[in-house]
Simulated assay, not measured.
Amino acid sequence: MVNHEQLKALLLSRREELTDRLGKIKQGMTRKSSADWSEQAQERENDEVIDALGNEATIELNQINKALDRITEGEYGYCSVCGDEIADGRLMAMPYTDLCIRCAEARDQ
């Protein structure tokens, strides 16, 4: 079985990275708009992209926090639907997942 402490360190590092990214996004969203109309239009388009990136980071951050809670509670590495162990390869690829591959595929269909 994969070492949960290594994955916990990976999750904590990723959480810090995402928290920093969200802080930078917030700073960028509060900047003053340009006086030029064409520049304002471009800034609004950029803001939409930045907002979408912020939403994705927030979702991943929530998943990471839930995974860290599962580690603390001793439930990490087990599927939240069927209770089977989650394959090591899946945990390495998606350390915040709470679904085994079978349940994840069933959910996506």
Score class of each variant (00 low, 15 high):
62 N>P: 07
4 H>V: 15
79 C>H: 02
99 L>Y: 11
73 E>W: 05
94 M>P: 01
31 R>F: 00
72 T>R: 14
95 P>D: 00
24 K>V: 02
80 S>N: 08
40 Q>H: 04
43 E>Y: 02
46 N>F: 03
93 A>M: 08
90 R>M: 07
15 R>F: 06
78 Y>D: 10
84 D>A: 08
77 G>A: 00
80 S>L: 04
106 A>N: 11
22 L>C: 03
42 Q>A: 15
47 D>C: 01
5 E>Q: 14
10 L>D: 10
19 T>M: 08
52 A>S: 13
9 A>F: 00
16 E>V: 06
1 M>I: 04
7 L>G: 12
54 G>V: 02
37 W>R: 11
58 T>G: 14
29 M>G: 10
43 E>F: 01
3 N>S: 12
96 Y>C: 03
10 L>Q: 13
29 M>T: 06
53 L>K: 05
9 A>E: 14
22 L>P: 06
73 E>A: 12
92 M>F: 04
84 D>W: 03
88 D>M: 02
94 M>E: 11
73 E>S: 09
15 R>G: 02
45 E>F: 03
90 R>G: 13
39 E>W: 01
13 S>A: 14
93 A>W: 03
60 E>G: 01
101 I>K: 09
29 M>P: 08
40 Q>T: 09
81 V>A: 05
12 L>M: 11
88 D>N: 10
29 M>W: 02
26 K>I: 05
104 A>D: 10
13 S>L: 04
92 M>Y: 06
26 K>R: 15
87 A>W: 00
15 R>C: 04
39 E>N: 08
101 I>N: 09
85 E>Q: 12
101 I>A: 11
30 T>L: 11
45 E>Q: 12
9 A>T: 09
86 I>P: 12
77 G>W: 00
3 N>V: 06
29 M>H: 09
50 I>H: 01
19 T>G: 08
11 L>G: 12
41 A>N: 04
55 N>L: 07
42 Q>C: 01
18 L>G: 12
16 E>T: 11
104 A>P: 08
64 I>M: 05
26 K>S: 11
79 C>Y: 01
63 Q>D: 14
97 T>K: 05
61 L>K: 13
43 E>D: 13
85 E>C: 01
72 T>P: 03
18 L>S: 11
50 I>L: 15
26 K>M: 08
27 Q>I: 07
2 V>L: 09
14 R>V: 03
68 L>R: 07
31 R>E: 13
56 E>W: 00
34 S>P: 05
75 E>W: 02
89 G>H: 05
27 Q>G: 13
26 K>F: 05
106 A>C: 01
1 M>C: 05
102 R>Y: 00
107 R>Y: 04
14 R>P: 10
107 R>A: 15
21 R>I: 02
107 R>H: 08
23 G>S: 10
98 D>Q: 09
59 I>L: 10
1 M>G: 15
83 G>H: 02
46 N>D: 12
77 G>Y: 00
